[in-house]
Each structure stands twice: as structure tokens, then as C-alpha cells.
Design a protein around this nucleic acid. Structure first.
Lengths: 226, 226
DNA sequence: TACAAAAAATAGTAAAGCTATTATTTGTGG
DNA sequence: CCACAAATAATAGCTTTACTATTTTTTGTA
């Protein structure tokens, strides 16, 4: 049995659904590769066009500009992450265990049994860590937000917040703690690799060390409110 | 008595010290204004040159590129913030009170008795909140880090981490908690204004609400380790 | 006053980020 | 199977950005 799950995103993100053609799929797949290689600033549609042997204008038919493409990719990631969390926490009754699972997934998003698109999750994860903030740190956040472009990110945070609320009903900041958890997971990952003095993780530290910190942080907050 | 404190930054940040001339001071002062208005992406040296009635090349004599200028500005802010914290926590013996003061300053960096440069702190604060991450989220972090460009940010985090360590000697993640606190203060501020569903702060929430959350978060973590 | 060094203004250039126009393909009715 | 319109793709362009090299002006000093 081979299950193929498809992620369908908000049409405001693209001009033409990239899932609808081979070119579209290539755009998504190889933009992940190229952004990971060059960084978002140096990534251009022209360079991407060269790599997948099409023209710059060809890519503009799918995405209005590279920023929309970045939102598309990050949003894809958050949708995928929410699905992972939903799947992995399903049938777990214990809320503490649910939170542990969420933290483990955020600390190390690993491939599961399901094949999903031809996207390299490791590279996409690195992109979301290093470039994800740039998706919403713009002068047009409000507009983009109204167009629902960040819905999957917000949904994910709400889902996490609701688990927090179940675990510690009296805790007054479940949403802030959820967004803090998600952001911190990524920031600490980035710091560990690039500005290690901003963390307590040595060079050999793995994702369980990060998970340990996040766990301590989250349960510290939630248990204090219990 | 009028005390003028001058912040002197790492020469790797500029080609010519902006503090050394009127033009240089104008570049710093009006870039804060213009980046706040346009956002970092749409900000260009040409537009800045127009505003302060000089030429684009004139600005290039001071800063290699706009990214270096952004690091200059954020770094200025962090140096200033560390000074504020140093000053305000001086002579406070109680570590809990020290942490409260730090959180209050991070939640609302207000002008103090000292005049410091002609820089609008409110605008600069907004820039650091909205654009600060872009200073280090690049493909050349490592290089920039080696050139010590982020030293003031790291110093600030270390200072905060050492207060955490004094308060709760057994706590294993003081540095990560310090960077998390600083980043979270800014992220939650940004979310409150732009993506409010990611927080628990209503439209009327002020900086004491943010401080309340941060306080709960930090002491939750530190007290759990005591 | 002469002259070199520093500073400033001018005039470029290559690439980025789009867009308008032209060409080609593809699907459908006669 | 052919005509032909709609959809798709390729070409060529244009404006702005991000710099840089060159020339001109100013300034300090012998």
C-alpha cells in the first residue's frame, strides 16, 4: 500500500496551482533546494528557471513573486506539521504525553510513513528555520493576514494552545505559549548551529537536548499555573 | 547638567564612523525614520539620500550596504538596552527584582534621563522588533559573527543569563532562556500588533500584559529548577 | 601659494524583479 | 480533418536596485 497525501493550499498564495502540472511541482521542489543553497535573499526566479530549464516568466505564471513562494513553502510546512501532530497525538489520552510528542516533532520533524510530495523535508525544515520569519515580517503582513495566508500557522498554534489549555485549564497564556514554543524551537535550532553562545547546547547537542529545554520551558509555565 | 552618552560600535560595521560627521549622524538618524516607514525591503540608499539631500554614493562611503546599516542599528539598540539594564539593575540586591526590571525594560524600552544620540527610540524599537531578526538570518551569519558584529546582542544575553544563574543556580539553560526571553519579548510584541490570534493579548493590551506573560514564563522555568 | 590627500559628486554597470508582446500549442465545433 | 479561438509558453523589453569607477572639488599643510 502506498498512500499519497496531497496538501492543498490557499489559492491566494499562487496564480496557478503548482500541484496542477509538472512544471508547477518542479518549481516547488527545486525552489526548496535552491533557497536552501543560496538563502532567500540571493534566490531569484531567474536562477530557479535555469535550474529547472524553463524561463523566468514561466515561474511568474505560477507565483506572483518570490515572497509569495516563500509563504507557500512555509505554509506547506506548517500544514504538514499540523498533520503530523494530529496523527501522532491521535489516541493519546494523557495530555502530558501529547505535549511531549508535539515538542519532539517540533524539535526534529522527521519523515513518516506517508509520502507527501517530492519535497525534501530536511531542506524545507532548514528553510523554515532560517527564512520562515521573513514570511510575515513585512510591511504587508496585515494584508497577507486578511488574505488568510498565515491560516495554517495560526491553526497549528491554536491546536497546540488547546492542548495546553486541556493540560492546565487555569493557565492564562496558552496562545502566546504556543507561538513562543514554535518560534523558540526554530530559533534555538538556528542559534545552536550559527550563534551557539546564545544557547546552552554544545557542538554535539542533538534534537533531544533542544526538546529537553523546550519541555522544561513549557511545563515550567504550565505547572506553575496548575 | 546634561549628560551625553555616546555609543561607539565595532568598526567592522561601517566604512567610515557615522558619529564622525554630520552626514554620518544624519544617515543613522534618518535611516531609522525611513526603515520604520518603508520596511527594510523597500528601504534603499537612494531614497535615504533623497531624504537627507545627499547622493547614494555618499551613503556608501559610510556603510558597505544596507544590511550592514541594519546590523549597525540593531547593535546600537542592544548596546543601549544593555546599558539601560545595567543602570536600572544597579544596586538591586534581590535577583527576582532584577529580573522584573529586565523584563519591564524589554517589554517597553522607554527613554531615560540620558540623552543619547538623535535617534528616535520608539521607531528604533519598532525596527528591531520587525526587522531585527533579518540582521542574523542570512547565509553570511558565521562570517558576520566572526567579525564580532553580534557581540552586543550576545553580551546582553550573557548578562541576562548570569542574572538567571544567580537566581536559580541549578537551572541548566540560562543562555537559551535569555535568548528566548529577548526574542519572545519582540515576537509577542509583533504578534500583538499584527497577528493577534497568536497571542492572548486583546486589542487594549499594554506592555504590562506582555511583561506579565514573560514574567510567568521565566519564573516558571527558573522556579521549577530551584 | 602650491600641492597632495581626503571627500564629494558624477556617471556609469550588472543584476533583480517584473511586464508587455509575440509565438506556439491545445482543445473543440464544423 | 481542418479552422480557429482560448490557453499556454517564450521573447524581449523596462524600471529599479545595488553597487563601483572616475572625475571633480575641498581641505589641510608645507
Amino acid at each position: 500500500m502506498e498512500l499519497q497525501l496531497q496538501i492543498k493550499l490557499n489559492p491566494n498564495l499562487y496564480l496557478r496551482d503548482p500541484e496542477s502540472s509538472t512544471l508547477g511541482k518542479n518549481i516547488v521542489r527545486y525552489s526548496v533546494e535552491l533557497i536552501d543553497e543560496l538563502g532567500f535573499e540571493d534566490f531569484t526566479f531567474k536562477k530557479l528557471a535555469q535550474r529547472i530549464d524553463t524561463t523566468e516568466a514561466g515561474i511568474y505564471r505560477y507565483f506572483e513573486n518570490k515572497h509569495k513562494l516563500l509563504i507557500y513553502l512555509t505554509t506547506w510546512f506548517w500544514t504538514w506539521m499540523e498533520y503530523q501532530i494530529m496523527f501522532q497525538t491521535n489516541n493519546i489520552a494523557d495530555n502530558k504525553k501529547k505535549i511531549d510528542t508535539i515538542i519532539a516533532l517540533l524539535s526534529n520533524p522527521r519523515e513518516t510513513t506517508f509520502l507527501m510530495a517530492n519535497i525534501d523535508k530536511e531542506k524545507l525544515n532548514r528553510i523554515v528555520v532560517a527564512e520562515g520569519n521573513k514570511a510575515y515580517l513585512t510591511k504587508h503582513v496585515t494584508e497577507d493576514n486578511k488574505a488568510m495566508l498565515f491560516a495554517p500557522y495560526k491553526d497549528l498554534c491554536h491546536k497546540i494552545a488547546s492542548v495546553f489549555a486541556d493540560y492546565a485549564p487555569g493557565y492564562p497564556y496558552p496562545h502566546s505559549l504556543a507561538s513562543t514554543l514554535v518560534e523558540t524551537a526554530h530559533h534555538q535550532m538556528y542559534f545552536k548551529d550559527n550563534l551557539p553562545r546564545l544557547t546552552d547546547f554544545g557542538p554535539g547537542a542533538g534534537d533531544t537536548d533542544l526538546a529537553g529545554y523546550l519541555s522544561h520551558l513549557v511545563f515550567g509555565a504550565l505547572n506553575a499555573a496548575k
